Computed example of a mutant assay.
Amino acid sequence: MTTALVTGATAGLGAAFARALATERRDLVLVARDGERLAATAKQLTEKYHVEVEVLPADLVSDEGCALVEARLADATRPVELLVNNAGIGLRSGFVSNTIDDEERMLRLNVRAVMRLTHAALPGMIERGHGDVLNVSSVAGFGPTAPGSTYSATKAWVTTFSESVHLTLKHQGVRVIALCPGFVRTEFHQRAEIPTSDIPDALWLDADAVVRDALVDLRRGRPTSVPSVRYKVLGGIVRYAPRPVYLRLIGRAAKTVGRTTSD
């Protein structure tokens, strides 16, 4: 059996990736902060899919947490063939309303941890001549948003980083992809206390379907995966629309948000 390591593995897309990869008979290394929840998730996967599941309780915001997972990824005696960098956070408010500690915490998890874990995993993959890295990004990274300026910037970094490493390594047997979904029904927005009541049902995606599409795109060697036709269209508009036009639209949206929050 091959082994996959998934961060943020106890909920949302991370849990969906764990289920999908266990279905493929892959052994798993699951990373999250909550050790009890990790143990419960591992027990469920082992009993249902009969795979080996290793748990690594770690806070990837911290140096110690990153170092723990990096050491596991670099262990040549127990190679990891697929790294899923799923752990990430968002913040409810815009940049000026957040504390600098919260902003830095988001950067450390959404950007720094992705970079460090990818850097730890790649040497072994390159040496073996095969391996996959899947970094969870977002269509929010295709352009500036209001008011979540730093979140969209972190996801823009993840997408561009993944595409760059993909171009560097695609001829060496190593595949790297950025998964860029829109709204997915997970705990993400609830944990960030982001209101979702105004988001139309048509914009919500199912986590298991997103994961299935992402794994298909990874195996096809694509540098990005944008699940569903509607987000391919919306993402294309954001990514390729003339910049002055898009910035003008976002500026109007930002004014509307500002008026709403001040009323």
Score class of each variant (00 low, 15 high):
126 I>T: 14
137 S>M: 01
138 S>A: 09
103 E>A: 14
185 R>F: 06
148 G>Q: 00
160 T>S: 09
148 G>K: 01
175 R>V: 10
172 Q>L: 12
115 M>T: 15
209 A>E: 15
163 E>I: 04
189 H>D: 10
135 N>Y: 06
163 E>M: 08
108 R>Q: 14
151 Y>R: 06
181 P>T: 04
111 V>S: 14
172 Q>D: 10
113 A>Y: 05
195 P>I: 04
149 S>A: 15
183 F>W: 14
162 S>R: 00
113 A>T: 05
112 R>C: 07
183 F>I: 09
175 R>E: 12
192 A>T: 08
131 G>K: 04
155 K>T: 00
160 T>Q: 04
100 I>V: 15
158 V>Q: 00
129 G>L: 03
206 D>Y: 09
174 V>T: 12
140 A>Y: 00
188 F>H: 05
163 E>Y: 03
176 V>P: 02
165 V>C: 08
135 N>K: 11
209 A>W: 07
97 S>P: 06
101 D>M: 10
107 L>I: 15
147 P>M: 07
160 T>V: 05
192 A>I: 07
123 P>C: 07
154 T>I: 00
157 W>S: 00
104 E>V: 08
130 H>F: 09
134 L>M: 15
197 S>L: 09
203 L>Q: 11
202 A>P: 10
102 D>M: 11
149 S>Y: 06
106 M>K: 05
108 R>D: 08
120 A>L: 01
205 L>C: 07
207 A>T: 02
199 I>V: 15
195 P>K: 07
135 N>D: 10
159 T>Q: 04
110 N>Q: 09
116 R>K: 14
113 A>K: 05
162 S>G: 06
159 T>A: 01
162 S>L: 05
139 V>M: 11
128 R>F: 08
99 T>E: 13
183 F>G: 07
170 K>D: 04
148 G>T: 04
181 P>I: 01
106 M>V: 09
168 T>A: 10
128 R>G: 04
178 A>N: 06
120 A>D: 00
122 L>T: 03
167 L>W: 15
163 E>H: 07
155 K>R: 08
210 V>E: 05
153 A>T: 02
156 A>C: 04
206 D>W: 10
187 E>P: 10
112 R>A: 12
168 T>E: 14
177 I>V: 14
108 R>W: 02
144 P>M: 03
98 N>M: 11
181 P>D: 03
131 G>T: 06
135 N>R: 11
109 L>S: 01
140 A>D: 01
214 A>L: 05
117 L>M: 10
163 E>S: 03
103 E>T: 12
